[in-house]
Amino acid sequence: MDHAEVLALHDRDLRERARPSGPGARVERTGGVVRQVADADGWNGILWTDLDEADADAAIAEQIAYFTGLGRDFEWKLYGHDLPADLGQRLTAAGFIPEPQETLMIGEIAALALDAEPPDGIRLLPATDRVGVDLVADVHEKAFGSDSSRLRTGLLAQLAADPDTVVAVVALAGDEPVSAARMELVPGTQFAGLWGGGTVESWRGRGVYRALVAHRTRVAADRGYHYIQVDASAQSRPILERLGLVPLTTTTPYLYEA
């Protein structure tokens, strides 16, 4: 896999030419900025930029004015190779709060190790209706300690409007949900994105997360996708590297409260 070529393809197809991530959202281009605008329950933020030292501060001010005018909190999703090189510092100076940095990892599906199966006592259940989505949301609240109402609302809406673009799965120990994750399939591109993999503490380190990655990737392969991409935390990166994904750059969410 040519790392520079694949990163350029990722930037073009998933950022510069991004599709709305859910019903009711829209993608707009203004100057050197591509942004998504959604309602208060959706994701609002900056997807891609073509900026330099001369116009970066004005572009930042313009986006702050736009989203605050809508009454929306929003995220500036900054990648390690975005320009200008000090864009993160400029965002911080403008009032954005950086969240923990993650690693953009991409794998060519044909080259990945996809033989990982769930550990004994675990079965995987597709989440295709409200009952399944509630299980996904419940796992996320337990695994991450955060409210999952936005996830629940967005996933239900996406399953209702365009079910071919999302795959959600829950790992059950008996009848107890212990892990969950989803996959976004981007039509017209070669990429499927893995999102939201979370496991309750008592089941971590047993191979459940690895099995969920392998399961979703096999689904992506069956549907004709070529690459898997993940924004990996420090905890998930070693697991993904063992499966064959490679780090290409970093990604950091910068949040602005309206």
Rank of each mutant, 00 (worst) to 15 (best):
L9E: 14
D11L: 11
R12F: 11
R12I: 05
R12Q: 14
R12G: 02
D13L: 15
L14Q: 14
L14M: 15
R15V: 04
E16G: 01
A18S: 11
R19P: 00
S21P: 00
S21Q: 13
G22T: 03
P23T: 07
G24Q: 08
G24E: 07
A25W: 03
R26Q: 14
V27A: 04
E28F: 05
T30E: 15
V33D: 03
R35K: 13
R35E: 05
Q36N: 01
V37I: 15
V37G: 04
V37M: 06
D39W: 02
A40Y: 06
D41V: 12
G42S: 07
G42A: 06
W43R: 13
N44G: 08
N44A: 06
N44Q: 09
W48K: 02
T49C: 10
L51F: 11
A54W: 01
D55Y: 00
D55E: 10
I60F: 04
I60G: 02
Y66W: 14
F67N: 03
F67R: 00
T68M: 03
G69L: 09
L70N: 03
G71Y: 08
R72V: 08
D73G: 13
F74A: 07
F74I: 05
E75C: 13
E75F: 05
Y79E: 14
G80L: 10
D82Y: 10
L83Q: 15
A85W: 05
A85M: 07
L87F: 05
Q89H: 11
R90M: 09
R90F: 08
R90G: 09
R90V: 04
L91C: 10
A93E: 13
F96G: 03
E99Q: 15
Q101W: 01
T103E: 10
L104K: 02
L104E: 05
I106P: 02
I106K: 00
I106R: 01
G107P: 04
G107D: 06
E108R: 14
E108V: 08
E108D: 12
A110Q: 09
L112D: 05
L112S: 05
D115C: 07
E117P: 00
E117C: 08
P118M: 08
P119A: 08
